[in-house]
Structure formats: C-alpha cells, structure tokens
C-alpha cells in the first residue's frame, strides 16, 4: 500500500549542517514526529547540548535553550521544576552526556525528573574533530587515541543505558539505533513512549540512540552503518532496559 511521507511540522525547513550520512538528522526527525503526534509543540522546550547538535535549535520549531557542555539535564531540571506543565527534552551527544555531564544525567535520572533525554551515542566527539569519547570502542582509533582505545589506559566504554537503568528510581531507559528502516521504526516507538511517559507525568525517560559519524570514523555512510551493526551493537545491546512498570 503506497505511503505518504512529509516533513514533521516541528522540524524546521532549514538544511542541517550535519555531515552526509550522519544519522543525527534521522533522530531529529523522530523527535519532531513525536512532538507532532502528541500535539505538544506549543508547550515544548528543547535543550541543545554542546557538540554537533548544538545547532539543533535551528532545526526545531519549538522553544529552545542552548546548554553549556554537559549541563542540559540540570537546565531541564530547572525548567521542569518551575514549569511542570512544559514538555522538556534534552538532546545530547556522548561527550556531552557521558563525559563532562555524567554527574548531571545520573542525578536528574535518580531524582526522577520528569523530562526526556535523547542521548546520541556515536562513539566520538564529533564537533571538535573526532576525539575519543567515554563510549569509544576498545581499539577504536580516534584523534586522541591514534593507536586505538587502550582499555588498560582509559578503561572500557561506558554503557550509559545500563548504568542509568541500575538506579532505583522508576524510569524508562531504552537503547535503540537508526541504521536501517526497521531499527528506525523501533527507535521511533521508544522515543514516542519516552515522551508519552513525560506527558503523563510518570517518570524520567532516556533513549540512547546508536548513531553514525562517517566523517570522524573515516568511513562512508554505508560503511558507518555497517560498523554500528558489526562493532557497536554487540557491545551496546538494543532494547528497553527499564520501564516504570518494572
């Protein structure tokens, strides 16, 4: 049956600055579709990180704030506490959330702040030129791990979803990817569910999305998709790790 497909209203018309094949763009679309479907654009406030997605505010049509590096969860806490009626989401990369901002995300999740975090894990610092991130894979070459991540020196990649799922406060924690239409559809379901929990005032919600970085991985968009499938997926298993119903 033929389908229609149009740009979500919450997504702006502006061309994105993201590199060709970078799946940030897909994730933006999934968030915007969710906002449209829930009809909440007029009461949504997004929070952009520092990183490739710092310019996310140019690609959404709702109110936005731009965070300092790693601090989006604290800003979201501030907004949600003084204006619980607003729908608040943070959009963060792995350097932003899992490195400098680890304290903020852990405590926001542990307090059960009722906002939603979209956590884009592409295993490097993208904006600054492909440095090693907390999620960089063992042996993965980056501009600051030229011989490959040496787990003896800098430890193993951090599994953020598992780490947050271990907290005792109810939450919705899911890990998804966007490397093919099937996984994109599942990622959309998880993002939609995350926002629904927020709109219902139920719990903190975070969706970790494994995403590509062709430029800094030194791969074509298709090779990057394969690398996520072959290298990241075995280490970062997909699925809903925690739901408030648990």
């Amino acid at each position: 049956m033929a389908k229609t497909f149009t740009k979500p209203r919450s997504l702006s018309d502006q061309y994105t600055h993201y590199c060709p094949g970078c799946t940030h763009g897909v994730i933006h679309r999934l968030v915007a579709e969710t906002i449209d479907e829930l009809g909440v654009m007029e009461r949504t406030v997004g929070i952009a990180p520092v990183g490739c997605a710092v310019l996310a505010y140019n690609y959404f049509n709702c109110d936005f704030q731009e965070a300092a590096h790693g601090r989006a969860p604290a800003m979201a806490t501030g907004i949600k506490r003084v204006r619980p009626d607003l729908v608040v989401f943070t959009y963060q990369g792995d350097g932003d959330l899992a490195s400098i901002g680890m304290g903020e995300i852990v405590h926001a999740a542990n307090r059960g702040e009722k906002f939603t975090t979209i956590f884009v894990n592409n295993a490097v610092y993208g904006m600054t030129g492909g440095q090693m991130a907390p999620t960089t894979m063992p042996g993965q070459r980056t501009t600051t791990s030229p011989a490959g991540r040496d787990v003896q020196q800098v430890g193993m990649p951090i599994k953020v979803a598992e780490l947050l799922a271990a907290l005792q406060t109810p939450a919705f924690i899911s890990r998804q990817t966007v490397i093919d239409p099937k996984s994109i559809r599942k990622a959309k379901q998880a993002i939609r569910r995350a926002f629904e929990y927020q709109v219902a005032g139920r719990c903190f919600s975070l969706v970790e999305v494994l995403s590509t970085c062709p430029t800094n991985w030194g791969k074509t968009p298709l090779e990057a998709v394969d690398w996520v499938r072959d290298t990241m997926l075995p280490y970062y298993p997909l699925g809903d790790l925690k739901t408030p119903e648990d």
């Binding site: 300092a68 604290a74 501030g78 304290g103």
Partner: peptide
C-alpha cells in the same frame, strides 16, 4: 555546577 544551570533553565523559562 548543576545548581548554576538549574538557575539558567528556570530563568530562561
């Protein structure tokens, strides 16, 4: 650090 940005978020709202 977090408190400073809670202020930013609330004031920004």
């Amino acid at each position: 650090v977090a408190v400073g940005y809670m202020l930013f978020g609330a004031a920004g709202a």
